[in-house]
Write a protein that binds this DNA or RNA. Structure first.
Lengths: 194, 194
DNA sequence: TTCTGGCTATAACGCTTGTCATAGCCTAAC
DNA sequence: GTTAGGCTATGACAAGCGTTATAGCCAGAA
């Protein structure tokens, strides 16, 4: 017999990712995450005994994997298609939430770590960026770009999209995303065409 | 007799900008801002009667103007020089703080506003981005780019640098900035050369 | 049926938060 | 010397924070 819809643990993770993508990590309380997932507060500490950091880490990894899956799928049709999917994905997030949500990975990436320590959530954010870049770079190389150029373009794409999403939120407009999209598309066409 | 170095009010604003660039807005308390500026808590509410939002707004505008001034100066030598200055500026921030600080404007831009309301600090962030883009776009147009392309490249530069700074913090490395720099430089050369 | 163990409910802990109010200092004008 | 006013000092307020502890429920195995 199937469980009633989504299991609690998973709901907490996806809900946490959603809230972090809106408010940032430190502005999101565990109590609110629990309420948002319709789970009792006690359950969060049952499933995530290390507390907020663990929950944040899993939330980052969750969206990281989700985006990576979509990216991997679309990249089968080439780097340009992958880029377009990546752009469309974040455009949808921003537009569907009336410019309230962005990328939870970025949100976690800009939280200051304690001195001489690297919190697991920050480490996870670095790994997610690396993963996305890797997928894009691989595809670019497979389509004729040399290794260094592929790596540079991949980094530029991830960074530009992340930054653009933030700009869209501030301006409450998707126009920055249109502009960035045009330039990145041209850049890929150029790199693979020449 | 001259006052002891910087006046209190200014110290509070620059200190607030610094703290916000590290921890984000909501993780930075007014008490800590006051302490960081060696000012009494009461003074923050004396100088900024609207409280935290006003302080954040002024902090955003402060760094916005500061960066704009530097950008305007360096753009006199052309868009490529301006880009390089912009890159160097943020590389220094990230490197000098051991990857603890980033851009306070981005930090404010990704804070969720209350529904149906636009906090002044968020509005200020949008204006700062617009200002930086405008400076870059003007320079690009003056050097031969057509209006649309200039606007697109300007947006891409600001977004990419903002995103890259965040990636550098997550990875604790300036390599993303190197890669982004190479691509953006090539892009400008291309746009003005063709 | 009894028992086990995953999950929940509830309350509490010490601490920090944004903000406000009140009283006081202490310099500068008159 | 007196007076005004910008700034500071101090403390309080209600609310929220992350986290822990304890006791209880309630399905499935024995």
């Amino acid at each position: 017999m199937a469980k009633t819809s989504t299991p609690s643990r998973e709901r907490i993770v996806t809900g946490a990712a959603d809230m972090i993508s809106r408010r940032g990590l430190s502005a999101t309380s565990i109590r609110e995450m629990a309420k948002h997932a319709k789970a009792p507060l006690g359950s969060t500490y049952h499933y995530f005994p290390e507390g907020k950091q663990q929950l944040a880490t899993e939330a980052v990894r969750h969206t990281g994997d989700q985006v990576a899956r979509s990216l991997r799928q679309e990249l089968k049709a080439g780097p340009a298609a992958g880029l377009n999917a990546f752009l469309a994905l974040w455009r949808k997030v921003v537009a569907d939430t009336d410019f309230h949500a962005g990328c939870p990975v970025l949100a976690v990436a800009i939280e200051e770590p304690p001195a001489d320590e690297v919190p697991p959530a920050l480490e996870a954010a670095a790994e997610v960026f690396e993963q996305w870049e890797g997928l894009l770079a691989d595809s670019l190389r497979e389509h004729g770009a040399d290794a260094e150029q592929a790596a540079q373009i991949a980094t530029l794409i991830v960074a530009a999209v992340e930054g653009t999403v933030a700009m869209c939120r501030a301006k409450r407009s998707t126009e920055p995303l249109d502009r960035t999209a045009a330039q990145l598309q041209a850049l890929i066409a150029d790199a693979l065409g020449g």
